[in-house]
């Protein structure tokens, strides 16, 4: 009796799984999961937005002042403590403090923060400001104020040369 019941339950789970799994991302969606970007045209102090997996990715060429400011923040002040150094390291463990590459999606409820375009408000901490619910990020993309719980997410990226970065 128990064995039959157990086997039956396995059968039900095995039948249910394809239906659930069916809703996961399809192969063509997954295939678009890496992009390559040439960063040479981005001048110091400028930023660009590229689209990756349907989301905006911010690539900011930071100024000396912005890097200094980001490195000087004491960990105790951060809701989600993370060193600036860690946020500018690529998958080959090489640190490039001038390049900050993050997913431009607010970790609160998924809006695109302002601050990447010239003329955008950058918020109180000189980084990014989310217009939806008022989260402010610093020059390292770390959350400083507002409802967002986490820093802006750093995707896996690798500088294949000094000018070319592969995201994903």
């Amino acid at each position: 009796m128990v064995a039959t019941g157990a086997l039956g339950a396995v059968g039900v789970a095995a039948v249910a799984w394809p239906f659930i799994n069916n809703l996961n991302p399809a192969a063509d969606t997954l295939a678009l999961s890496t992009i390559e970007v040439n960063v040479t045209p981005i001048a110091v102090g400028q930023a660009v937005t590229v689209k990756w997996r349907g989301k905006p990715v911010f690539i900011r060429h930071r100024t000396e002042a912005e890097i200094k400011e980001a490195e000087a923040v004491p960990m105790a002040e951060l809701p989600d403590p993370e060193t600036d150094n860690k946020r500018v390291t690529d998958t080959a463990k090489k640190v490039r403090p001038e390049w900050l590459i993050m997913i431009g999606v607010c970790t609160h409820l998924g809006c695109v923060p302002l601050g990447n375009k010239p003329g955008d408000t950058k918020g109180e901490y000189g980084g990014w400001f989310c217009p939806c619910h008022g989260s402010s990020y610093d020059t390292s993309g770390r959350i400083r104020k507002g409802p967002a719980p986490k820093n802006l997410v750093i995707p896996d990226y690798l500088f294949t040369s000094d000018s070319l970065v592969r995201i994903g």
């Binding site: 659930i20 809703l23 996961n24 991302p25 399809a26 969606t29 999961s33 997996r53 349907g54 989301k55 609160h108 409820l109 998924g110």
Partner: peptide, 24 residues
């Protein structure tokens, strides 16, 4: 994105709901 607030499995649930990496 409300579902991403669920600890541990939140992100996977959201990807599953979207069927991708964003609303698409």
């Amino acid at each position: 994105n409300l579902f991403s607030a669920i600890p541990v499995v939140g992100e996977s649930i959201v990807t599953w709901l979207w069927g991708g990496f964003a609303v698409d």
